[in-house]
Amino acid sequence: MNEQRKPIYELTKVALFAAVTFLGIQAFRIPLPAAVGVPFLHFGNIFLLLGALILGGKKGAFAGAIGFAIFDLLNGYITVMPKVIILAILMSFVASKLFEHFKDQIGVTKALILATTCAFLISLTGDFLYDTATLFLVGNGLSVAMWGAFTSLLATFVNSVFGIVAVTILYPVLNPLVKKF
């Protein structure tokens, strides 16, 4: 590869993952009932984590944060944008660091499962804490706020389980294609 063009190729890969992260949310959404917010099933986190694992934590976090931010801006979710961006960055860094650390020790498949599970635990924890704070700040007692937040985690949990399986299947297929590009 021409060294002068390398930054352009890297930027193109980041833009690609930002675009597919956005499309993973925009094109496929199934709303679920919840006590807090309007959660829905989507593919965005799958592409966020694939970007983090293939591009690395910084570039993957940047791509995912851009994809989620564009979705939030275009669909009226501006109020939750900071939470979503922070969680995207944390999930990306944790997944990429764990995967890089463990892939040679326990194998790629087990490292993918470990990394994505930990990333989705961050998502579940972040959503729970944010929703608890939201309910508490509008006047609910702490136990009511926590229960309401807990009952709103269904979409995050389903996205997480599906995401772990999808990333584990898609990474070995997509990684060589993106690296070749």
Rank of each mutant, 00 (worst) to 15 (best):
G64H: 01
G126A: 13
M81V: 11
L73H: 03
I54D: 09
S92L: 06
D72H: 09
M81A: 13
I113S: 07
F62W: 11
D72G: 02
A61V: 09
P82N: 11
A119R: 03
V84S: 12
N75M: 08
C118S: 11
G76S: 13
V94S: 05
G126M: 09
M81N: 05
I66Q: 10
G60T: 03
G76Y: 11
K110A: 04
A115I: 07
K59Q: 12
L121W: 11
V94K: 01
F71R: 03
L73M: 15
G56A: 06
L98K: 02
F68A: 05
M91A: 10
A111V: 12
L74M: 14
A115W: 01
F68I: 14
A111K: 09
L124Q: 04
L73I: 15
L112C: 05
T79I: 14
A52I: 10
G126D: 12
A88S: 08
G67F: 03
M81C: 08
K103T: 09
M81G: 06
L121Q: 13
A95P: 09
V108G: 00
I122C: 06
K103I: 14
F62V: 15
A52N: 04
D127N: 15
H101E: 15
I70L: 05
A65F: 12
A119P: 00
T125K: 01
F102S: 07
I85W: 06
D104L: 08
A65M: 14
L124V: 13
I113W: 02
Y77K: 06
K97Q: 15
D72L: 08
K59P: 00
T125M: 06
T117C: 12
G76M: 02
C118E: 08
L121V: 15
S96C: 00
N75E: 10
D127A: 10
T109L: 13
I113G: 00
F120K: 07
L121E: 06
L112N: 01
I106Q: 09
E100D: 15
T109W: 02
V108L: 10
V80C: 03
L90I: 14
V84K: 08
G57K: 01
A119W: 11
F102Y: 15
D127S: 14
G60D: 13
C118D: 12
L90D: 01
F120D: 10
F68L: 11
G57Q: 00
I106K: 01
L121G: 08
D104R: 13
P82V: 07
F102E: 15
